[in-house]
């Protein structure tokens, strides 16, 4: 089974985070939402593997939940 990489994989996390926020500079909430959606689609296509994508979707859906939700 293909694996979702969950160990550290980005060489310079600070720089990546910076770049991630920088593309949203000056954007309205709607524009940012649209950008995020495009980014997800681009990355998803890059990954391609349906099992990996499903694991990522599942992980994202499971994290950040509050107790009573």
């Amino acid at each position: 089974m293909a694996n979702l990489t969950l160990s550290r994989n980005i060489a310079d996390p600070d720089r990546f985070y910076d770049t991630l926020l920088a593309v949203h500079d000056e954007l309205s909430k709607d524009e940012s939402d649209a950008l995020n959606a495009r980014l997800i689609l681009i990355l998803a296509n890059h990954i391609g593997d349906e099992q990996v994508l499903n694991k990522a979707l599942h992980l994202a859906a499971q994290t950040g939940k509050t107790e009573d939700s």
């Binding site: 939402d33 649209a34 959606a37 495009r38 689609l41 681009i42």
Partner: peptide, 17 residues
Amino acid sequence: RIFRDAVLDLAETQEFA
């Protein structure tokens, strides 16, 4: 709708979408 529009925007230049 956000995802739908993102697909359409990408489709203009990106074959994968």
